[in-house]
Design a protein around this nucleic acid. Sequence first.
DNA 1: ATCAGACTACCTACTAGTAGGCGTGGATGC
DNA 2: GCATCCACGCCTACTAGTAGGTAGTCTGAT
Lengths: 194, 194
Amino acid sequence: MFMENNTAVRIREMAHDLIADRGYFGFSYADIAETVGIRKASIHHHFPSKVDLVVATLKEYRAKLAEAAGGLDQSIADPLQRIKLYVQYWAECVKSNSRPICIAALLSAELPALPEQIQAEVQLHFKYLVSWIRTTLKEGARNGSVHLEQSAEVEAQSFVALVHGAMISARALGSPEIFSSITKGALERFQPER
Amino acid sequence: MFMENNTAVRIREMAHDLIADRGYFGFSYADIAETVGIRKASIHHHFPSKVDLVVATLKEYRAKLAEAAGGLDQSIADPLQRIKLYVQYWAECVKSNSRPICIAALLSAELPALPEQIQAEVQLHFKYLVSWIRTTLKEGARNGSVHLEQSAEVEAQSFVALVHGAMISARALGSPEIFSSITKGALERFQPER
DNA sequence: ATCAGACTACCTACTAGTAGGCGTGGATGC
DNA sequence: GCATCCACGCCTACTAGTAGGTAGTCTGAT
């Protein structure tokens, strides 16, 4: 049967929560064991090492992103609207304080100290995200629904950086509204006729 | 005599290096002891607890920022030029990989897991930085040397977020140039006549 | 004589990870 | 139909190593 192991999923989800809260070094198998309601050693049965667990968490995270992005590409005709929905998703995460930060961005901050396999996954996430934004912006620029002042590549890089920075500022200042007000301005700048 | 304790300074500087590399949970007194050439226990003589050390490091960091910002305010007439020099400072840090990330931004990522005193220091840093950028942008807007599309507050918040996000993207992608290309665009947008 | 600043030696708590046992449940052989 | 098997999930009990922190001692300069 292909029924995915339920406990493994719960462990991975808990790992995601904890990483979003504290980063790689800030959580332990003991933390996960407690909240999942399992013993420490049992986690090793599903994920032999902490690196395995975090790599799996990042792979799943990227798969979910790809799935969501693909869904938007298919169901929303207007490219700018797709990006607005992406921002709106994060605005809600920030507001409700549920995983209010991109774990790839968080792990990138700690990057030099992380095991190589995790570094590689983090880099893949950034590459995928920037590439999706770039492609979407390009499509919008082509059909005139998006206005770009610089190359699509630089605009995409800037947008990703702004969104991640906004998450961090919102966390630092304890103010979810800051995320919204920062990203609102960036989205307006993409509007063609002003 | 007011000659500040040399060892304490070296410990603090090393702490800064290590935090910029790995974050709060990623370094230990043992790491510092090794590189400073002192025993672990001796660090406790200067900084009784890890919290004390990190708070002191953040206070010094903020003092240095205030000193540099004040210096720019006095010696550089053009507000936009002051901000350009601020960005240039970071561009060089990123390029040379010496403390290539703002430790307040990095610690903000791990914020929920940090001791309260450290959270407070991180928040103070953000408040000071945003306030300096806001004041500087406002001055530029008043004398016509800076063009703002939104309120100075939102523009300042956005700019700080963009710079921090750019540091993180540069780290994730292992490419210092990304920091420069992202920030270049943001600075151009402040230019009044285009 | 004092005292800052370093030391040795130690503590407890926690880390990731391992060894090996136990029970369940589904597949297999007869 | 029934006994056997065995993989799986989870467990207890443990390891070596490291974390931050403490107690008490030595030393050298004022």
